[in-house]
């Protein structure tokens, strides 16, 4: 069976559409979900078996949460650079562009224009060269990253009689912050251990906000004891924006007594 045959292309397109409809049916409409069928068609149009790894990722993305569409955009990008078939590069470009449309960022228009340029180039080596030249500034300025307007993650709280502790994953550039909800309607003493690192200067890395108090913490280990009301949450925010060669990270350990 010839995988590049027209009937197969239609079958792939229909399969992709079916996958998207199932996704929309059960998870609701979102523009970025259109990246799933587009990337699927792009990847499946390539005859190289090795490329089924991104294909597999797309299938997984179809079953996963909203962030799966970003994996589809990555797969689209992959096909855009790798595929010698223009008919595969077009849906690949569309898959990437759809993600940018759904998640606008400062560099989105510029990057989409560059991707379109890459899509039009027929020679693979030239596409690689263009992508390589583009990758450096894109990584250095993190052009595809949308504004960090997501809500802070809620730390998991475990509590017993007179004691509570919180667990939260490390806060990096990819996490907007963490909130530690109060254990209950009682006054409590919270002991925080905040470990900030990954920077090369002494400027603040994280901010801890609790009730009326807020503290900016530079790199190092900080042990804080806070007297809190039963209605006060503690917020921990990473303060640094992306800059090359720094990897800000904040580890939070917290326990409370009352």
């Amino acid at each position: 069976m010839d995988i590049t045959g027209r009937k197969t292309e239609w079958a792939l397109l229909l399969a992709g559409l079916a996958g998207w409809l199932v996704t929309v049916l059960f998870r609701g409409f979102s523009l970025e979900w259109a990246a799933l069928p587009l990337a699927f068609v792009a990847v499946a149009s390539m005859s190289d078996v090795r490329l089924m790894v991104p294909g597999f990722l797309i299938l997984l993305a179809g079953t996963a949460s909203g962030s799966g569409s970003a994996a589809c955009a990555v797969a689209g990008l992959f096909v855009l650079v790798r595929s010698d078939d223009f008919r595969a590069r077009v849906p690949a470009l569309a898959a990437t562009a759809v993600w940018f449309l759904a998640n606008p960022s400062p560099g989105a228009v510029l990057l989409t224009a560059c991707f379109t340029g890459i899509c039009l180039v027929q020679k693979r080596k030239v596409r690689y060269a263009l992508a390589g030249v583009l990758a450096l500034p894109a990584l250095a300025f993190m052009l595809p990253t949308p504004g960090m307007d997501r809500e802070p993650i809620v730390a998991r709280c475990f509590l017993g009689e007179g004691y509570a502790r919180w667990e939260t994953p490390p806060l990096t550039l990819g996490t907007p912050g963490a909130v530690l909800a109060p254990p209950g309607p009682v006054r409590f003493t919270m002991k925080l251990e905040v470990e900030c690192g990954g920077v090369r200067d002494s400027l603040p890395v994280a901010m801890v906000a609790a009730g009326e108090t807020s503290l900016c913490l530079p790199g190092g280990i900080h042990r804080l004891t806070l007297e809190m009301d039963g209605s006060d949450s503690v917020f921990v925010f990473p303060l640094r924006d992306h800059r090359p060669f720094i990897h800000p990270v904040v580890h939070v350990g917290a326990e409370a007594f009352w």
């Binding site: 090795r50 490329l51 790894v53 991104p54 990722l57 949460s65 962030s67 799966g68 970003a70 994996a71 955009a73 990555v74 797969a75 990008l77 992959f78 650079v81 790798r82 998640n103 690689y128 992508a131 990758a135 894109a138 990584l139 993190m142 052009l143 595809p144 990253t145 949308p146 960090m148 550039l173 990819g174 992306h242």
Partner: peptide, 26 residues
């Protein structure tokens, strides 16, 4: 064989690592 594909996939995921939970592991 496959070196360009691996580097491309790595670069793609690196570009998107802040946007999704898969980015860094990907």
């Amino acid at each position: 064989r496959g070196l360009g594909a691996a580097v491309t996939a790595f670069t793609g995921f690196t570009l998107f690592w802040r946007c999704c939970s898969w980015g860094h592991p990907g």
